[in-house]
Design a protein around this nucleic acid. Sequence first.
DNA 1: ATGCTTTGCTCAATCGATAATGCTATGAGG
DNA 2: CCTCATAGCATTATCGATTGAGCAAAGCAT
Lengths: 345, 345
Amino acid sequence: MKDRQKSTIYDIARLAGTSASTVSYALNGRWQERRIKRDTVERIQKIARENGYQVNLQARGLRNASSGLAGMILPEHDTRFFSDLSQAFALEVRARGSCPAIVLSGRGREAQEQSVQTLLSYNVDTVVIAGATDPMPLSAICRSGGVPHVFVDHPCPDAPSVVTDNYQGALALTQQMLATLPPARPDDPGNHVFFLGGEATLPATERRIAAFRDATRAAGALHGSDQVIACGYSVARAETEIAELHARLGRMPAGLFVNSISCFEGVVKYLAAIPEGEMASTVLGCFDYDPFGALLRFPVTMVRQRADVMISEAFARLDEGFGAPSLSLISPELVSQPMSSTRTA
Amino acid sequence: MKDRQKSTIYDIARLAGTSASTVSYALNGRWQERRIKRDTVERIQKIARENGYQVNLQARGLRNASSGLAGMILPEHDTRFFSDLSQAFALEVRARGSCPAIVLSGRGREAQEQSVQTLLSYNVDTVVIAGATDPMPLSAICRSGGVPHVFVDHPCPDAPSVVTDNYQGALALTQQMLATLPPARPDDPGNHVFFLGGEATLPATERRIAAFRDATRAAGALHGSDQVIACGYSVARAETEIAELHARLGRMPAGLFVNSISCFEGVVKYLAAIPEGEMASTVLGCFDYDPFGALLRFPVTMVRQRADVMISEAFARLDEGFGAPSLSLISPELVSQPMSSTRTA
DNA sequence: ATGCTTTGCTCAATCGATAATGCTATGAGG
DNA sequence: CCTCATAGCATTATCGATTGAGCAAAGCAT
């Protein structure tokens, strides 16, 4: 408090009449190794406190070739899932006594590489990469910097990866939807189940589509490839796609598997605008979670990815230390709507 | 790529047959000041590229007493508002060419002070503090470290602060609700408008309650102090409070002003469990925003805080540089439900 | 009194980048 | 031919914390 400037161990040393190295050991808790008198330590600590001393972590990091920072990059904060991931990451890192540095990099390849480079430049001790657009170069960068890293959500063949068990989750969701449906008649496409949203080339969507196909096929509810509409992640696009489907069928489909919360938003917007009777019999499922999604005017089964479990698993992989490629699948949970005593026909 | 180890300017200097300082200037773009030959610069840049050189930002920061990091602390990522804030922050910082470091500190005083200390230890160039539990000590820490800082969402009397215009927002929301209500009869409390949620001692809630009082009083709809139920932010608590209110009145209130998205979640959970007729005539408002909130089975007017505007304003304050106390009010926007052609009585 | 151990520290180098100062060729001007 | 300016770089100190090596004094045994 006395000085406006930050004080260094040299300042403290001068005030305490000792050397800087003594101050260093006194303040970082390892003074016993150096056989420093308890008296001296306490005197130094007192002076440090009075002068508002704070270690310069840059200097320490430079010397130690490490920073005490754990870095995470993720595309955005626009969905619960990513927010939950960063929240879980922050908790875990703080519990381990280091400092989380979260970088929102956007979805561009370039930007993501940039972000990883920047983190490495700060000598982060580990990197968690969520939602990588193009994982391989990112892994290469980390490896060439010798930094342990792990991928979450979007896996990398070259590094430990933790992803939701998209196949199992989608299988469970589809089965649950089918169970509440009347059997489909092949001649009436209006009675079919549809899959909407996502990018078919991305591994997550690919697995989900596979599960959707398998489950519907097993139930005799797969009739053609037009049941899968992987139209990307845009809210507006999903809205127009569902409108088109509605028009094409002449009515709402019997079941709708929506593949991401943003598409679900588009679907719900559309549903809010049509007469309630029109969709009263549609069974809805969404592979993603939002607390309000479960509280809409119609029942929805949602799949919740377990961000906290994924993060613990990611750190478990990091703790192992080899950095060998691996793939951990985390089962998501099915969240069905709480009992709705309502629903006026 | 050649080496597994990170290379330094000294390595590059050796390979290029120059001195380290030449390399430094060649690579950081300021070589003209040092009259270094273009040939030399290009040779150095080539070698640097081939060896995967990356500046060590810790070393640079140590030397320059700055880090290129912009720090933000915020309590959690559990609501849209905070997620939007960090998203906007990240965009703004990256647009300015530095690196965002976001720290989720939780709501504890201690933890928040700790987080700010840690940021200062990394020599961050600026600090944005969102949702401070106890602003004064945080500001004191930044000031004693000589670091420009600004408060967002929860203001500090000692520093520039940017907050939502809670009074105006709540006034507009209350008025909008009252406008769609039949006039209240003083003798029938069931016809009253209620305010639910929040912590009355916090400045945001305090302002909102004031506006709620003023608007209801002006409309002759303020009858007693029991119309304000500041029961905190817990989902479960809000649910029991609304249940109790329902029981006490013998029916749902005519209007309900819900003061935060978490309380709104509790309210919606409750509403989902009662017969639809029971609440068909309740007018709902929520001071917070969630895209699905607007798509529930009943109409809701939501107040959306403009995170992006708040962040630009925060940086405008930082750019001014004096760090003098100030209070910027940002008007939120009212989001009414899109036309609902539905609602079966 | 001498030698040896232990205590309690100090010194100086180091991490990598930066920047003030210094040094050496070359060419121009007188 | 000598002086001086300039281009083009090299040297070296510095930022703050850490750490291996060392060193003086005290204690102890012989």
